[in-house]
């Protein structure tokens, strides 16, 4: 079963083609809209939707050309149905449904967060179920117990800013532009991570929730107090990582899990990767990351998540489509076969 996937939940337009039988990603392309939104200092939803529409046809054509196949090779279409920006989601969903309907193949709306946490399954070292997932991006910071595909329990999440958001906002305070999270991390390499004694948020409270808006304020104060930007950046990054290590240790102890999956844009952060590798080695467990290029939003992960459900016989319940700006992972269910659907051989 070859699945074409379309992702358009925020400011990346992405298309992928995945072959379920071989488990191989045949091709995937991502177009980032960063330039469209940079001058506004954040993602403008209407501009995002407009740009998705401009990019989708050529990006899809290029992806199929990369894979060396035509539309007749597509057995099913998966698309991101949420969570995300409603207008942006609608554009990709309508486009995907048009392809699926006209080729008479099944379609399925996929949860973007499920895509992220299953992304490491596309790698050479896929994790076995169950595992603990840390989802860290510009929009989400969650700790999730993953029993199997479709069985998710939210253990904790940020009560305010997402981690990626805290990186980007702190970067903005340092004049690193938008989105500046990655630039902040590069600047941090030159700084002293012990120079500014930031408080690690929420670590003295029980539970697994996170909070980063206070840290962002502390960054503003540290800059105002005259600390060198590279020292503030290094201290900020160290504080975030320390906090995550404390919460992850707690979550692993609580659940008894010994496998950790880290996904989302912030999973590309090298110091974070290194610390989590060390942490899991000390615990005698293992940590799995997606390939760097599959940490940020992409359609490969949507293709994989879609495939796992489509192959089980799951289909869109509606002939039309619905998108959900909010769609918590915990609401997902195991892949289910519609009464009318005929299972497709993988």
């Amino acid at each position: 079963m070859r699945v074409l996937a379309i992702e358009s939940s925020c400011d990346e337009t992405a298309v992928a083609l995945f072959d379920g039988r071989s488990g191989k990603l045949l091709a995937h392309r991502v177009h980032s809209q960063t330039d469209v939104h940079a001058e506004y200092g954040g993602v403008v939803p209407e501009l995002a939707a407009r740009d998705h529409m401009r990019r989708l046809p050529s990006l899809t054509r290029a992806t199929l050309t990369d894979a060396g196949v035509g539309y007749d090779a597509i057995d099913a279409v998966a698309y991101t149905a949420g969570p995300g920006l409603a207008g942006a989601l609608m554009t990709g969903a309508a486009f995907a449904k048009g392809i699926a309907a006209s080729r008479r193949v099944p379609a399925l709306g996929v949860n973007h967060l499920e895509g992220h946490i299953l992304a490491p399954l596309l790698g050479d070292d896929p994790p076995a179920f169950p595992f603990l997932a840390l989802l860290v991006s510009g929009g989400h910071s969650q700790l999730i117990e993953v029993r199997e595909v479709g069985d998710y329990r939210l253990l904790g999440e940020s009560i305010d800013d997402a981690i990626g958001e805290a990186f980007d906002k702190s970067a903005k305070l340092m004049g690193l532009g938008y989105p500046g999270g990655a630039a902040l991390s590069r600047l941090a390499e030159q700084g002293d991570p012990t120079a500014v004694p930031f408080t690690r948020p929420m670590v003295n409270r029980p539970g697994l929730d996170l909070s980063f808006s206070g840290l962002k304020t502390a960054v503003a104060n540290a800059i105002a107090a005259g600390h060198a930007h590279e020292d503030v950046a290094a201290s900020f990054e160290r504080t975030v990582i320390d906090t995550l290590v404390i919460k992850l240790t707690r979550a692993l102890d609580q659940t008894g899990l010994d496998r950790l999956v880290v996904a989302g844009g912030v999973a590309a952060n090298r110091p974070l990767r290194q610390r989590l590798v060390e942490m899991m080695a000390e615990r005698g467990g293992a940590v799995h990351f997606p390939a760097i290029e599959l940490c940020t939003d992409n359609a490969a992960m949507i293709a994989l998540a879609g495939y796992r459900r489509l192959a089980a016989g799951e289909r869109d319940a509606l002939p039309g489509f619905r998108v959900r700006a909010r769609w918590p992972l915990a609401e997902l269910e195991l892949p289910r076969m519609l009464d009318s659907a005929v299972p497709v051989t993988p």
Binding site: M53, L56, I74, M90, A94, A96, G98, S102
Partner: peptide
């Protein structure tokens, strides 16, 4: 309606590319 215009346009685009 911006969203309404995009629903028909994107769906038409999908059909058009998949059927050339």
């Amino acid at each position: 309606s911006f969203t309404g215009v995009r629903i028909a346009t994107a769906m038409a685009q999908g059909i058009a590319i998949a059927r050339d």
